[in-house]
């Protein structure tokens, strides 16, 4: 990273570790990145910190083959734009799967991973990434519940 001072990395550490955003009590909307002011309600807004579930779907994705200096050694890696259940979109890497398995609409959940290591004993940065959720279970349970409803009906 071109900015290497420790405070710079430390300042957004909580948001990066726990996927924290902003919720406005006035318009009932969640925002990410975190904000001091609700962009919709402005002064009328009442904002508070919110921890997101980390669950969401892939809104778009790419596979980075040519990385910047900091990420060069990790290529190729997948970057996803994730639409969280709570509404906001966040960007990070998609891990624990092959690039060809990623598709728009795929269910993912946040996990805690290493982002990069600075050269020469510099800091190691961590934060959220996303991994696929096996949603075949969700389908199985949906079917199970539907079957049970059917049984109870008859």
């Amino acid at each position: 990273m071109s900015v290497s001072g420790v405070p710079r990395h430390w300042r957004s550490l909580r948001e990066r570790y726990r996927l924290l955003g902003t919720y406005c009590e006035n318009c009932k909307t969640s925002f990410f990145p975190p904000r001091k002011i609700c962009p919709k309600c402005r002064r009328k807004g009442r904002t508070r910190e919110v921890e997101f579930s980390g669950r969401g779907r892939v809104f778009s994705y790419t596979v980075i083959h040519v990385g910047s200096k900091t990420f060069e050694e990790y290529t190729p890696y997948i970057i996803g734009l994730i639409e969280l259940q709570e509404g906001p979109r966040v960007l990070s890497q998609i891990v624990d799967c092959k690039p060809e398995d990623v598709h728009i609409g795929m269910m993912v959940e946040a996990c805690f991973r290493k982002l990069f290591e600075q050269e020469d004993g510099g800091i190691i940065s961590y934060g959220f990434k996303f991994r696929p959720v096996d949603d075949s279970w969700a389908e199985y349970y949906d079917r199970l519940l539907a079957d049970r409803a059917m049984v109870e009906k008859t």
Binding site: S60, I104, S125
Partner: peptide, 17 residues
Amino acid sequence: AYFGATFPGVYALIATR
């Protein structure tokens, strides 16, 4: 950028969508 996105990468996200 902090999460590994590059400039071509961001336009690639647009292209995929």
